[in-house]
C-alpha cells in the first residue's frame, strides 16, 4: 500500500512559443499552461501503482502564482490531494533552487514510499530534479525508468540507458524518474475532471520551509535566450522533370566537393 508523491511542473506549452523575427527573442505571451509531458507519465504511473497495490497518491508542485491553474488538472489525473508552493522565486529558479524547495516541502508534508518525477520538464529538460531531491533527502534514486513494479517495500525498475537496459531493485523509500514510454497517460474522464473540484489542495508557504537565502539563490542564471533560426541556402528545385532536378542537385553537390 505505497504512499506515493508525484512532483510535477506547470510549464508553458513550447508549441505556443514563437520567435520574434526582429531580435530572435521568445514570445510566450500566447502560450498556454500545461502539466509538463513527462510529469503526466509520472502521475499516471503513480495512479497505476495505487490501482494495483493500494495506497494513495499526492501531488506536489512549485511554481509562480500560475501554479494554481494546475491544481484541478493534476487532481483530475489520479492524485487525492495536491500540495503547492507558489512564489515569484520560481520564475528564476534553477534546478538547484527547485530541488531545495521540493526537498524541504517533502520533509514538511510527510513520509512517502515513492517519490516520482518525470525524466525532465518539457520546457527546459534539465533532467536533474530526481537525483538532486534524492541527494538532499538521503534517499536512493532510480532514473530513466521504463517499467516499475512494487512488491511490498521492494521497488523494482527497468531502466533504459544509452546502450543497455538495466533491472535494479531497491528497498523504499526512493526517488524515481520515469521515461515517457513507461505508460500512456489516460485522458481524464469528465467525471474525473468534475471530481477534481471536490479534492483537497494545500498551499505550503515558501517562508515556512526554513530555507536559507542562499538556498533560494539560483546557481545557474539564464543570461540570454534566443530563438534558434536555421540560416540555410534554401535552393529548392521543383521542376516537373525529376531528372532535371537531379541534374541541378548533382552540380551543386559537385561544387560543394561532395561527389
Amino acid at each position: 500500500m505505497p504512499k506515493c508523491l508525484v512532483c510535477y511542473k506547470w510549464t508553458l506549452d513550447e508549441q505556443d512559443i514563437k520567435i520574434k523575427p526582429e531580435d530572435l527573442s521568445l514570445d510566450s505571451s500566447r502560450a498556454k499552461g500545461k502539466i509538463s509531458d513527462f510529469d503526466r507519465n509520472a502521475i499516471e504511473e503513480a495512479a497505476l501503482i495505487v490501482e494495483k497495490n493500494g495506497g494513495a497518491v499526492d501531488a506536489l508542485s512549485y511554481g509562480t502564482a500560475a501554479v494554481k491553474q494546475s491544481l484541478k488538472d493534476a487532481l483530475s489525473r489520479g492524485p487525492e490531494k495536491v500540495y503547492w508552493v507558489a512564489d515569484t522565486s520560481a520564475e528564476t529558479a534553477d534546478a538547484a533552487v527547485t530541488a531545495n524547495v521540493l526537498a524541504a516541502t517533502i520533509r514538511k508534508i510527510g513520509q512517502y514510499d515513492l517519490i516520482l518525477c518525470g525524466e525532465g520538464s518539457s520546457d527546459l529538460f534539465n533532467q536533474q530534479t530526481a537525483p538532486r531531491i534524492a541527494a538532499l533527502l538521503g534517499l536512493p534514486c532510480l532514473t530513466f525508468v521504463q517499467k516499475l513494479t512494487i512488491e511490498g517495500d521492494m521497488i523494482r525498475a527497468t531502466r533504459k540507458l544509452d546502450d543497455c537496459t538495466e533491472i535494479v531493485s531497491v528497498k523504499g523509500p526512493a526517488v524515481i524518474s520515469v521515461l515517457s514510454e513507461i505508460n500512456k497517460p489516460r485522458i481524464p474522464s469528465l467525471k474525473q475532471v468534475l471530481g477534481a473540484a471536490k479534492k483537497p489542495n494545500e498551499e505550503i508557504k515558501l517562508a515556512d520551509l526554513g530555507l536559507k537565502p542562499e538556498e533560494l539563490q539560483p546557481k545557474a542564471v539564464r543570461r540570454s535566450v534566443k530563438g534558434f533560426v536555421m540560416q540555410r541556402k534554401n535552393v529548392i528545385y521543383k521542376e516537373s522533370s525529376a531528372a532535371d532536378n537531379v541534374a541541378k542537385l548533382k552540380s551543386n553537390l559537385a561544387a560543394e566537393g561532395l561527389c
Binding site: 542564471v221 543570461r223 534566443k226
Partner: peptide, 8 residues
C-alpha cells in the same frame, strides 16, 4: 526551439 546562455 531556442538557445540560451547560462551564468554559473
Amino acid at each position: 526551439l531556442a538557445v540560451c546562455e547560462e551564468l554559473l
